[in-house]
């Protein structure tokens, strides 16, 4: 748009957008601020925004109450572990479907997608019973397996759309240049697909980090990730806003930062490539 926009108009839009943006963001900001208050300041009336005694004690208290690091570590293991496992399965599958499409490729893709549409409650009981009988309840192994399977379709779809964008002529050029299948994958496809794979990974980690059905159903303490750790604050216990805020801040901060980096891929991943 080469046209000049009057500064007044621009200022108006700026003020309006920033206002809306801040309102939407406010609960997160408020949680962050409250996490540095004493419990008394947290419920003070009128509410305190900056002029209170800033303290880190809540972060210490939260760690004493339950082992934050353990749950954080569980979240990392579950989200990163399941993402890597799923990638190992998804990359060859997406590669094959993108570059050696057959008559049924499209049906297979749609079927994979359909598994994602199945509501979890439909399979809750058998999975729960299987986990109970095999001792997988409240174990990291169990959750990694579940998360891998849950996000496998999204992963395959995203990778498929990325692979599809690699022009066929480049692969033909490689073939003319004497690359066999192995060199083609190693020297041409993988390097070209790395940006796509990286953003797919990022999105998958975020989704797994925030997953709050299976993590709540299948864990209680030892393997509990941060979703479960926060859920333990659901019954009130005296003054606990500041502690809740500290715990919440610690639970969402890592992923919020990752998430901001992956906005663009998010759109693509969550719409299965329907919106780019």
């Amino acid at each position: 748009m080469a046209r000049a926009v009057t500064p007044a108009r621009k200022l108006g839009f700026t003020i309006a957008s920033w206002t809306v943006g801040l309102v939407i963001f406010f609960p997160i900001l408020w949680t962050f601020i409250t996490s540095f208050k004493s419990e008394g300041d947290a419920v003070a009336i009128p509410p305190l925004f900056v002029n209170f005694h800033w303290t880190l004690e809540n972060y210490v208290l939260v760690n004493q109450r339950s082992d934050y690091l353990l749950h954080f570590w569980n979240s990392v293991v579950i989200s990163v572990g399941s993402t890597f496992l799923a990638l190992v399965i998804a990359i060859p599958a997406a590669w094959a479907m993108a570059f050696v499409p057959g008559k049924r490729t499209k049906d297979v893709l749609m079927w994979m997608l359909s598994t994602k549409m199945m509501p979890a409650v439909g399979v809750l009981i058998p999975i729960y019973l299987m986990f109970k009988n095999t001792g997988l309840l409240d174990t990291l192994t169990g959750l990694v397996i579940i998360m891998t399977l849950i996000n496998l379709p999204i992963l395959i779809w995203m990778l498929y759309t990325y692979f599809k964008e690699i022009p066929g002529e480049i692969l033909e050029a490689a073939r003319m240049d004497g690359a066999d299948l192995k060199s083609e994958v190693l020297y041409i496809l993988t390097p070209m697909a790395i940006p796509g794979i990286a953003s797919t990974m990022l999105l998958n980690i975020i989704l797994a980090w925030n997953e709050a059905f299976w993590t709540l159903m299948l864990t209680s303490s030892q393997a509990a990730p941060l979703t479960q750790f926060i859920a333990s604050y659901s019954s009130p216990e005296g003054l606990f806003y500041a502690k809740l805020s500290a715990a919440s801040t610690m639970a969402i901060a890592p992923i919020l930062i990752l998430g901001w980096f992956s906005q663009k891929q998010l759109v693509r991943g969550l719409t299965f490539g329907a919106v780019k």
Partner: peptide
């Protein structure tokens, strides 16, 4: 920056957003 502010709630895990809203 506004975009980032608006996007943020999507990255908050459901248990956190529900508890923050419920209590605070």
């Amino acid at each position: 920056i506004v975009r980032i502010l608006v996007i943020a709630p999507f990255f908050v895990m459901p248990t956190v957003s529900a508890l923050v809203w419920k209590n605070m």
